[in-house]
């Protein structure tokens, strides 16, 4: 299995060489007790359903009658399914554009908010506000107000004399852009993690750099950024995983169809349509496991690369 490559690099830089006796003794037992809740959850709630879905991916299962073994048929169908490939393309474009944008915007706003401004508490709350709307059913209506043919964006363009732009959410060439905008709108949670990281940067290190004559930019790149790499690593990795699984925004705005004409047919949206609308849970499970394998490879590469750029405080 591809996952096997994942965990090793994380733990490779162990602080001290493993030794018997002293403080290390009994760590196995301590770990056992600390891991009881998680272990019980994995065994009772997580692994079973996951493996069951793996089994379903080799069956034809319509939810209403018993699953029927079909071997690799779902996987073969998938490779020949033009809409499957459409959803792959939509998702890849989204990941490539959205993940870097999200990191840059979140980091910039976090930097802006990591200072001694008045009303800072208020600002933080307000920037976080859009993330709280989540998947609310109200979001679809709000997004039409902004990106519809008669929406705010076109009204503003009209002021500058640009007319006849048409709908943004309704145009297949632009609809994906509005979904990227929607999910970017909720950058608050990524920002909060960066902000918490920035707060941990010890002030004396930056002051020392300033005394040495380092410019602001240089201080950011050689002091702040390295110290934030564990959280940046977390944000980039989770951002990527979430982007591959992006569902809610497109589901809400397109009314579950991935339209117009499949232009926002995200991978998981298509998976959902197959599983719950077309009642082909076998096919949906096969799609899910292909995604798991792809994400395992991506995650593995991330972890492998992390030893070159992520600096942990627990390393000597």
């Amino acid at each position: 299995m591809t996952i096997t490559t994942v965990p090793e690099p994380v733990l490779a830089p162990s602080t001290t060489p493993r030794r018997r006796g002293g403080g290390r003794r009994g760590q196995g037992w301590a770990a056992f007790f600390f891991l009881i809740p998680w272990g019980a959850g994995i065994v009772l709630l997580t692994v079973g359903p996951m493996l069951y879905s793996l089994y379903l991916s080799f069956t034809s299962y319509d939810l209403l009658s018993a699953p029927e073994w079909v071997g690799l048929a779902n996987y073969e169908l998938m490779l020949a399914d033009p809409r499957f490939w459409k959803s792959v393309r939509v998702t890849l474009v989204y990941v490539v554009v959205f993940v870097p944008l999200l990191q840059v915007v979140s980091m910039l706003v976090a930097l802006l908010l990591n200072s001694r401004l008045r009303f800072l508490t208020g600002y933080r709350a307000l920037f976080y506000l859009p993330s709280l709307m989540g998947a609310s059913v109200a979001v679809a209506a709000l997004w039409r107000q902004v990106f519809g043919a008669e929406g705010l964006v076109n009204a503003v363009l009209g002021v500058f004399g640009v007319e006849g732009v048409g709908s943004w959410v309704g145009d297949p060439n632009r609809a994906l852009g509005t979904i990227i905008g929607l999910n970017l709108w909720a950058f608050g949670s990524t920002m909060i993690i960066y902000l918490a990281g920035l707060r941990q940067v010890p002030r004396e290190l930056l002051e020392a750099a300033e005394v040495d004559g380092a410019s602001r930019l240089r201080r950011f790149f050689s002091v702040t950024l390295p110290l934030m790499t564990p959280l940046a690593f977390f944000n980039v990795l989770m951002g990527t995983i979430n982007a591959f699984q992006s569902f809610t925004g497109a589901y809400v705005v397109s009314g579950g169809t991935g339209g117009p004409v499949d232009s926002t047919l995200f991978y998981t949206l298509y998976l959902y349509e197959r599983g719950f609308t077309q009642l082909q849970m076998g096919y949906a499970s096969a799609m899910a496991w292909i995604l798991l394998v792809v994400l395992a490879v991506v995650t593995g590469l991330f972890f492998r690369s992390s030893r070159y750029w992520v600096h942990y405080g627990d390393e000597s």
């Binding site: 048409g166 959410v169 309704g170 145009d171 339209g259 117009p260």
Partner: peptide
């Protein structure tokens, strides 16, 4: 209706 407007018609 043009198709882009039809696509954004609220349900």
């Amino acid at each position: 209706l043009p198709p882009d407007m039809a696509a954004e018609e609220p349900p």
